[in-house]
C-alpha cells in the first residue's frame, strides 16, 4: 500500500512538523520506499504470537507513591526558551 502526498501532509500535521510542498513531495517518495520495505513483514506468519513489549521478562518495579524529588524550580526552568515568575511562557492559548 502506498501513501500519497495528502497522507504525508496529514501525518506531518499530526507530528507537528511544518512541511512545505517541495519537502512533502520528496518525503512521499522516501516514505513509500521505506513502507514497501516494511511491508515484507506481511510474509511472516504471526498467528497466535503475542506482540512483544520488552525483551526483559520481568514485572515493572513498583515503589511507594511518595515525593522523592523536587523543590528546584530554577533548575527546571534553566533551559526554558521563555519564562516569567517561575512559569514557562507560551503563546496565548485561550481566546
Amino acid at each position: 500500500m502506498s501513501i500519497d502526498i495528502n497522507t504525508v501532509r496529514k501525518v506531518a500535521k499530526l507530528a507537528r512538523i511544518r512541511t512545505n510542498d517541495a519537502d512533502a513531495e520528496v518525503l512521499t517518495g522516501e516514505l513509500n520506499n521505506i513502507l514497501s520495505m516494511i511491508e515484507e513483514l506481511n510474509e511472516v506468519k504471526t498467528d497466535g504470537i503475542e506482540p512483544m513489549t520488552s525483551v526483559i521478562e520481568m514485572n515493572l518495579p513498583e515503589r511507594a507513591d511518595e515525593v522523592t524529588d523536587g523543590g528546584m524550580p530554577e533548575k527546571i526552568l534553566a533551559n526554558a526558551p521563555e519564562k516569567a515568575a517561575g512559569f514557562f511562557v507560551v503563546p496565548k492559548v485561550v481566546e
Binding site: 507537528r16 512538523i17 526554558a80 514557562f88 503563546p91
Partner: peptide
C-alpha cells in the same frame, strides 16, 4: 519549544510547535 531547546515563535501555540520542529 516550551520547556527547553530551540523555540521558533509562531502565530499561536500549534504554529510554534510546527515551526520549532521544522
Amino acid at each position: 519549544g516550551v520547556r527547553f531547546g530551540l523555540r521558533i515563535d509562531g502565530k499561536d501555540l500549534n504554529d510554534t510547535y510546527e515551526a520549532t520542529r521544522e
